[in-house]
Amino acid sequence: MFEARLASTLTLKRIVDALREILNQSTLDCSDTGIQMQAMDNSHVSLVSLCLRKEYFEKYKCNRNISLGLDLKSLTKVLKCANGDDAVTIKAADKADKVELSFESAGKERTADYELRLLNLDQEHLAIPETEYNCVVHMPATEFARICRDMATFSESVVIACSKEGIKFSASGEMGAANIKLSETTKGEVSIQVDEPVALSFAGRYLSTFTRATPLAEKVKIGLAPDVPLLVEYPIEDYGYIRYYLAPKVDD
């Protein structure tokens, strides 16, 4: 038996919004410690990993591990039926072929229950190695979203170069070129830790997709190391995260 209750549907809506542009379907792996999800996009260029620890939930019960295969489009349709300030309870029986979502209005005067059919998805799990990133940058999530949007005007490829002087985003195409550089700020909005400078090239449209998670967090963490996927991490309060990994472009 699995049961998890969140005080606000809004965060669940935001989490699904952050995933559904990359993934159509996905399996939530629920255990007694919380919910995990990991999936690649169709082209196997990026990977998204979601973790919600049980402390994130108002109520959490999971007697035995259960995998819930969900169609994110359908889930979005159900979430549209709820108000952001409704409480939501997700329930599934052991070996069930459906999941139940119940919404309760803030004043408790309205309840609505929906059933969603579960999918039997054959998803492979990848081992994500522990990586020591040579460059770790924290910046406001809205700033990162703005940079990705502005870069997209110029080119499909975005070069991210990080050194002690700052982090620089560059794009050049037929129209011209764009360079945006952020230095560390004394107030701590932007922090930059660099062991070794790194410069890598990435597909801008994936970066833009990751910024769908912007409403979830004030700050985003970016991790760069030579010849490994870029890490873009949005914390979910203190109880979890969405991590996006993006394979760099490489010289053929």
Binding site: L126, A127, S201, A203, P229, Y245, A247
Partner: peptide, 14 residues
Amino acid sequence: KVKQGSITSFFTKK
């Protein structure tokens, strides 16, 4: 020439 790498060449199956 630059080509897009695949995530599966960095992260391997469990």
